[in-house]
Design a binder for these strands. Structure first.
Lengths: 240, 240
DNA sequence: CCGCATTTGTTCGTATGTATT
DNA sequence: TAATACATACGAACAAATGCG
């Protein structure tokens, strides 16, 4: 089928195989969720060793195009490009983006114990109980960001329920008497999306997320939340 | 030195080696730019095959912690450098505060005519002459960002020469009587590096850049520059 | 400038572990 | 339980880039 591999011809065999598979996926030859031929089959087809096929598949897996499942097979992950490139959603305030606005959907909530870094951020003793909320934020039906919001627990017990009721972090805080809050710090980084983030934000494979870590305090300067927000970088534009 | 590897003991050998190396890097056992032991040496140290070491190193390289160069070795990449941004921050001040040597290097300069977007940003009529500077910023010899700085031209004629002389945008502005400037706007996005940026910033292929577009004004509120900065995302951490 | 040793990159072959079907 | 399919690991060989004498 393919020209036999010859060693040292400029382009690595695994790279050619990876490019070929990517092209076939892009061309619709394999659809989302479909199982690729087994490593052994691909190796035979291309006349290479199974290791070479694995190198190619791992390159695709790294970018989120496929996912290998032990014992089962290697499956196409690439979702259709549901969200065409458009104007980016603009956030006028980083603090807004970091979680003090009234938008967002609560995915799950759990009680955890603060690791040293989180404890320091929230001015708590290490090991203190903390409420952790998973949230998803959308604009016009398009996922924009996922948030991990952590609140000191004795103080904000039941926050998840009030958030779910009011649908607003601001109103939920108000029910605890917190009517104003200040940003203590914001750190901004960027990196590739993890598989979980790719899933949650419905991203195309290999995309970039903007990461905001911020700590907000009440008017008295006591930390009331530490948030870890990840934005789909090609859908947003932060304004400082 | 290390406990001998035993197959099938729960955690893959390559993962343990990767975690160990990551810990050593984090602990400062290896410094930025330092060469790691060769693959053969690491294999011998851990009592594993060279492939197993390569698997570990590739996991670290994927995350930008190390970079392998054929024929040369595997080197530790720069740890994140905090880079605060705020209403009045300049590169040299920040880097000085961080205890790092800062300097911008002028790569090239040219005169262009402002497109509508740029003209609006600088409060100029479209088609106005604008001076465009390509700059590279480093800390401790490591490229941190590349900048595209555009200045309104009748006002700042000869800026490139003064910048080259002083090595500082701040001092160059001072020579035009601009001793203070304010940030009018900052937009933050992130994406994959272009080949040009990969080259300029000496990045490994496929890395991410943080993009800052900002407009600065003088004390009277007149725009004095519109900059388009691209930071190596895994070498910086912006603080707002 | 050449040649050589060093070091990483690619590929094959083989064996075995482990999860899924 | 057995067959299938991916995961991990070892060993060998050669290719390609770097750096030094």
């Amino acid at each position: 089928m393919n020209a036999p591999f010859r060693r040292g011809d400029g382009i690595a065999a695994w790279k050619r195989i990876a490019d070929g598979l990517e092209g076939e996926i892009a061309a619709g030859r394999f659809r989302r969720g479909e199982r690729l031929p087994t490593e052994a089959q691909l190796a035979a087809q291309h006349g290479v060793n199974r290791h070479t096929v694995r190198r190619a598949l791992s390159a695709l897996a790294e970018r989120g195009l496929v996912r290998a499942t032990q014992g089962s097979g290697t499956f196409v992950e690439a979702p259709p490009l549901r969200y065409p490139i458009g104007p980016r959603t603009r956030f006028s305030e980083i603090a807004t983006a970091a979680g003090r606005e009234a938008w967002g959907r609560l995915l799950s909530a759990r009680e955890i114990t603060a690791d040293p870094a989180l404890a320091e951020a929230l001015d708590l003793p290490p090991g203190s109980p903390v409420l952790e909320l998973d949230t998803l934020h959308e604009a016009d039906g398009v996922p924009i960001s996922t948030g991990l919001t952590r609140l000191p627990l004795p103080r904000f017990a039941g926050f998840a329920e009030r958030y779910a009721e009011t649908g607003s972090i601001t109103r939920a805080y108000a029910s605890y008497g917190v009517t104003d809050y200040l940003r203590r710090s914001t750190r901004i980084t960027a990196r590739h999306a993890t598989p979980e983030e790719t899933e949650a934000l419905d991203l195309a494979p290999g995309r970039v997320v903007l990461v905001l870590d911020s700590v907000n305090t009440d008017a008295q300067g006591h930390p009331i939340q530490a948030t870890h927000s990840r934005f789909a970088a090609d859908r947003v534009e932060l304004s400082a």
